[in-house]
Structures are given as C-alpha cells and as structure tokens.
Design a binder for these strands. Structure first.
Lengths: 347, 347
DNA sequence: TTGTATGCGTTATCAA
DNA sequence: TTGATAACGCATACAA
C-alpha cells in the first residue's frame, strides 16, 4: 500500500511550534497569523511566521481560541426531522446567510421529541453556540421561555410563542389557506374538509384556524376538520379514511401539508377513488417533485429557502444589536394549481 | 409583555460559581459533577455540589472541557447536498449510531464544490472533531490522501479511493445495475441506454462500468452511454434529449440515479412519449415518493440509512482501535419493479 | 514592532 | 476525601 496510515501520527502543530520555527514568540506569531493584527507586525516577520505556519500545516485550534475569546462563531439550528423534504431548503437558506456572515451552523435533529430537543439544545449551549434558530413547530413549552429569560439569542421558524418577544419568521398560512379554500369554492365545492396537522404545533393550529375562518367566509360548514396525529403520510391516510367513512359527502380536502395530502392519495388508491374527479386535494408547502405525482398535486408554495435565510438575517441582527426590539416576519405564499383539483361531479 | 428580554443577562455560571455556592474547591465540584469521579467524593459533598449546580442552572462549558481533555465528542459529516433526498436518511443513520455512542455529529454541506469541501473540512478539523464521515462522492483528490497521512480518522460513504487504506461503505452498485439490465433484457429490450452520472464521481464511474459489463453479458450494444454533467433532473433531461435525437431506436434506459430518471420523465412529457409503452426507465436509489409518480418509477433500492449507520459503526471502531486494519463494506441493494418498465412495443 | 504575563473554564496530578 | 496547582492553546493588556 502506498500510504499506510502512520500508526503514530505526529500531534497537530500548535502556535508555539510555529513561533519556534519562525524564531519569534507566540504572541508575535498569533498577531502575524491574525489578519486583524497583522499590521502591528513588520512585513518581514509576518511573512516568516506565515511561511512557518504553512510549512508545518498549522491549523489554529478553534477550541482554545473560543475559550479565550468567548466567541465560537457557531450557531445552532434545531430541526425536527431532516428527512422531511421541507427542512433541507430551510437549512440551506440559513447557511446561505450565516456562512458568508462568518458563522458555522450546527444542525441537530429532535425527532419531534421534547426530551431530545431539550438534550440537543443543552448540548448546543454547552458548546457555546452564539445563537439558536429553532424550526421545531411545537407550541410553547417552558423551554423556550426559559432560554429567553437566560438571554439566549434566538429566532423561531414556523413557530409563534404567545407573550414572548422572540423574533419569528413564518409563511403566511392564513392567506395560503384562504387561497386554497377560495380556489375550491370557486370550482363549486361546498363540502370541503381540512385534514389538519397536529394541533399541538403552532403551524397545525394556525392553518386549522385559518381554514375555519375561510370556510365561514364562504358560508360553508366548518365541522369537517379531523386532526392528524403527525405531519405524515400515514397519519394523513388514517384521517382520510375516517373522514370518508363518517362524511361521505366530502368532495374536496385541504390537507395540512403535502405529506398528509400524499396520505389521501394512498386512500384513493385503496378505495378506487379518482382524484380530482371524485375528490379534490390541496397540499401545503410545495415540496419537491409534486409536479410528477399522479395527479400532480395542487398546493400552497412556501418559500422555505427564504424562510431560513430571513431567520438567519434576523439572528445576525440580534447578535449584532441585542437590544433591538424583536420583529416577526410573515413571508408571502402562493397557490400552485396543478391537477389534483377540479370541479365536483355534477351527477 | 410578561417577559421582556433581560437587557443584561447574567453571565452563565461557571464551575467556580458552583464550587463557591457549595463551599468547596472547584476541583471537588468538578469531581462531584462528573459521574466517573463522583465516587471519590463523599456522598454528602456530592449532593451539596449537585444541588448548587442545579440551583444555579450550571451547564458545563464544553469548550473548556475539550481544551483540557483534548476530546470534543464530535464527529464531522461531510455531505455534498442536503437537499438531495438521498442524504437525509444517511444523516439519520449516522446519528442513530453515533449519538448513542456518545458523539455529536456536525453536518456540513459542500455544494459539490471542491474549494468549499476543503474549507468545511478545515473548519471541522480546527474545531477538533475526532473523526470524519465523508459522503461527497468525488473521485480521489489530494485532500483525502493528505488527511489520511495526517492520521485523521475517517470513513467514506459511496466513495472508493484507489491505493488508500480508508474504510468505506457503499451500496452494491454492480449487482444493482446488473439486476436492472437483466430485468430489461428479460422484458425483451435490446437497445438499452445508460444515462450515467458524472464520471468524475466514483459512483458514476462504478455504475457506468457495471452497466457496460452487464449489457455485454447479454450480448447487447454498449455504446449507448451518455454522461450527465451532474446528478440532477435537468442534466438527466439534457442527456435524454440528446440520446433520443441521436439514437432513436432506444427503448429502455437505466438512469444513473432517480433524479436523472425524473429528467427522463420531463422529456417524455415534452415529446409526447409514453412511459413505459415507448420507453422504459429504471432509476437508482429509491428515494421517497417514487411510488406516487406517473408512472411509479422502477428503481434499485439502496439502504441509505444502513449505509450511514454502518459508516458510523466503522468510525466508532476506528476511534476505538486506531490500528485495526481498514475494511470496506458493500451493502446489498434490490430492484424494485414498479410501473416505468414494460416490454417494448412489438409493432 | 516585539516580548512578557495572564487568564478563559475545566480536569488532572500531586499533596495533604 | 479534599485542596492546591498546573496546564490545555490561544489572544490580549501591558511593558519594553
């Protein structure tokens, strides 16, 4: 083998090694290597130090630097489930702002588990992250309030907490749901159901509430609103089965999100129902590849990348100017009409 | 507002604060708080310290601890693109093993950019991660060899590097491609094309090579192998258009991955071609929701979660026993036949 | 312009 | 069982 692993790799060089190699003291080496202090040093010395650093393959030890400066240059991003196609674009949006801003992002998954969330956030804090972006959409629980009281800088995505002045960025669920209901009503549907997400999440609750208002505005019944236990395909299917059994007259469904809408598709297949001829469905989020489904799913597009980017900008603001009053931002959404919605059967 | 942010949050309590509150020395407090050293301490003192820690809301500072112990309990995971549905399951697989093993995982995106990869890995190393799991599938470039020479512990996913004794875990591409070709040949196809992924990636090259061998084994032509510039839907579409223009007799396609297969779907829609009647397509990976496409995509299922989990296990082994010889693992894949493949038209 | 000294918060070694 | 002390690697106030 041309490159067997060295069984005893030499330990990583420290600033001290660089200083010795360059014939200067560590303080000088430190200044030479830091662009901000390099000017205090003669060009010749700086060059010598940098050459030595390069020759040794010196990498500054961020752990030591952080301990000294009490700045880690890291931000924690709390995600409930990375395999939900919703979240990767948010992650990228966050990174697209934070990395140019000089921060690294530490992503953690919580699996929608409160205990895990707590543990993950503890871990992030013990690692001295400078701020938190929290995209777990559960409704207020004591943890957030506690963090806020301790002065932890944070921004919420898709989550509002009552009576807490924490900046938040969310999609405009109210307008999105209203557009969905309006679209279906305009097609002639009169018995429209909402398969809501878990009402323990702020998103689930917001969309359910918006749905209730929207159908009332159209003079339609507001009692067709089963709740899904999770934002998942299987829970969407379960809710849809129950709905069809109990309310056979339903001709259209506004799903809490795209995954729940996919669960409806499963039930249509099971029962030989045709979409959109028998039942119309609208999803929420516009996750990837929806245009290739059978039928292509009509949905409300949420700008996830922008959601992440905007949250990151707000966090940057907060880190820069801690005393600036918190603002919350609502990002516009848009209805994307595809093939899963049509006028109800007239027979 | 009931909870305005404290404009001057009190600084986080340190071990020293805890020690003072408990009336002991910091060394004693440290021992009392660490389960491994708690036994050296009288039960009474330990209780007092723990009570004080709890009262103050003490969180150990991992940065300081890491500097002292030169152990960070972190591992870096290098991913080319988190929005590719392939990778989140790998991430979860890695975490499912590493977190119970006492490590936290630091995920970075490289955007398939060599310079970014370098920068991200540098950043991870400066933060003293104890090992690296690398899922960026580019073929050997000097960075990996360099890391290896420096004794960096690492495991590769979906990537082989020649002449480098680094453990790697990959799906069994050869068998998967052979199964795909066999399936098509058995259906009666004789002009089968391969839309390969970038040949600069080890995966792209491996699948292309496997395809060539498989068609030869069936006595079929091996000259229908255009290369896609990236593993993307749009590059798949481009390659498919060129293929149809130049080789109109093709009746079946083995795509380098599912995304490329989706690109084929786009071209079918553009040109009014029917799948599978006019052209059969097979993808690779079995990413989520493929069963809901029109038509449902036949594909080769790769156990991504298990790929991540196995890589994590190997890294744990390597961290435990640095001198153990590196082994590489091939995980079995399976053909999932859905609706995008059928016998060719007989007219 | 460069060197000296100190401390960030923690753990480990040694002594008591 | 507990305390005193030093050290991890770095950056900075201060001195020269």
């Amino acid at each position: 083998m041309s490159n067997p692993r060295p069984s005893h790799p030499s330990p990583a060089p420290t600033l001290r090694d660089v200083a010795e190699a360059a014939g200067v003291h560590t303080a000088t080496a430190s200044r030479a290597l830091n662009p901000k202090t390099r000017q205090q040093i003669s060009a010749e010395t700086a060059r010598r130090v940098m050459r030595a650093a390069r020759a040794l393959g010196y990498q500054p030890n961020s752990v030591a630097r952080s301990l000294k400066t009490s700045r880690t240059g890291t931000v924690g991003l709390v995600i409930p489930d990375l395999t939900n196609p919703l979240f990767p674009p948010i992650v990228r949006g966050v990174e697209s702002v934070l990395e140019p801003g000089g921060y690294n992002v530490w992503i953690v998954n919580t699996d929608n588990d409160e205990e895990r969330e707590r543990a993950q956030i503890d871990s992030l804090r013990s690692r001295q992250v400078e701020g938190l972006i929290i995209a777990t959409a559960r409704l207020d629980h004591p943890l957030l309030r506690h963090l806020h009281e301790q002065g932890v800088r944070m921004v919420l995505i898709n989550r509002q907490v009552e009576n807490l002045r924490v900046p938040a960025v969310t999609g405009d669920d109210v307008t999105g749901v209203a557009a969905a209901v309006h679209h279906l009503a305009a097609l002639g549907h009169t018995r429209i159901a909402h398969l809501s997400g878990p009402l323990s999440t702020s998103t689930g609750r917001a969309r359910a509430r918006a749905f209730r208002h929207a159908v009332r505005d159209h003079g339609l019944p507001d009692d067709l609103m089963p709740e899904c236990a999770h934002w998942s395909e299987s829970d969407g299917a379960t809710a849809m089965r129950n709905l069809l059994d109990r309310s056979p007259g339903v001709t259209a469904v506004v799903a809490g999100n795209d995954l729940i809408a996919l669960g409806c598709y499963d039930v249509f297949a099971e029962r030989g129902l045709s979409c959109p001829d028998d039942v119309s469905v609208i999803g929420f989020n516009d996750m990837p590849f929806l245009d290739k489904l059978r039928p292509p799913l009509t949905t409300v597009a949420v700008p996830h990348h922008e959601l992440g980017a905007e949250a990151a900008r707000m966090l940057l603001d907060t880190l820069d100017t801690p005393d600036r009053p918190a603002r919350s931002i609502l990002l516009p959404v848009s209805l994307v009409v595809r093939g899963s919605t049509a006028a109800p059967r007239t027979d």
